[in-house]
Amino acid sequence: MSSHDQESTRPLGDGSDASLQSVHADLTANKPEPKDGYSMLPLFLLGLLSAVIFVGSIYFVHYRGGVDPLVYDERFDPKTAAKSATVATVDPIAAGKRLYNQPGACATCHQVNGQGVAGVFPPLAASEWVSGSDERLIRLVLHGLVGEIKVKGNTYNGAMPGFGLGSGFNWSDERVAHVLTYIRSEWGNAAPAVDVAKVTAIRTQATAGRTKPWTAVELEAVP
């Protein structure tokens, strides 16, 4: 290497800036004749450049993440992963819990622990109404309830507002289903989940047009 280097550098004349310029101008204008070994250098650089561009391109294509602004994992490919990617589903229990505890909603009367307030608001925990027929429960929550109701042997007399679409709370069927699923699985309750489709069916077919609250007697007529 060193012998070629010696040939490849030239003295700068008197060492002034002018000679520095002229020597290098000459070097640019008259490229050194290719000699054995010396011409290897541009070839090496060309090879390295090609290799680096090749590797770089492969790297980028492999880790491009679909060139998607929402992909932060470089190995993720939206095209192949689209099928397996789960659509964002709502956990009914978690969503129901949030709804239950919303200010002004269920927990205001029935309390966070579902125990209600003795003599005023009936409990939800271990209540036969909650864990029993979902047909009755859905109707109750959709439109509300007035008058006397017997829960766990105690009689309560109050008014519960409706929560379904068109009522004051205007909750969607999903929300109604979620909150019911929640109360049916919480505080020791273990009743099956409430289906959104069933809520929709009851609201739009079985009780279509109803706006006034139910009474316990009316509900007990429902299977």
Binding site: Y59, F60, R64, G65, V67, E74
Partner: peptide
């Protein structure tokens, strides 16, 4: 930041 920007930078 989007993965592709970083991959491009590395390349």
């Amino acid at each position: 930041v989007p993965a592709w920007v970083v991959s491009l930078g590395i390349a």
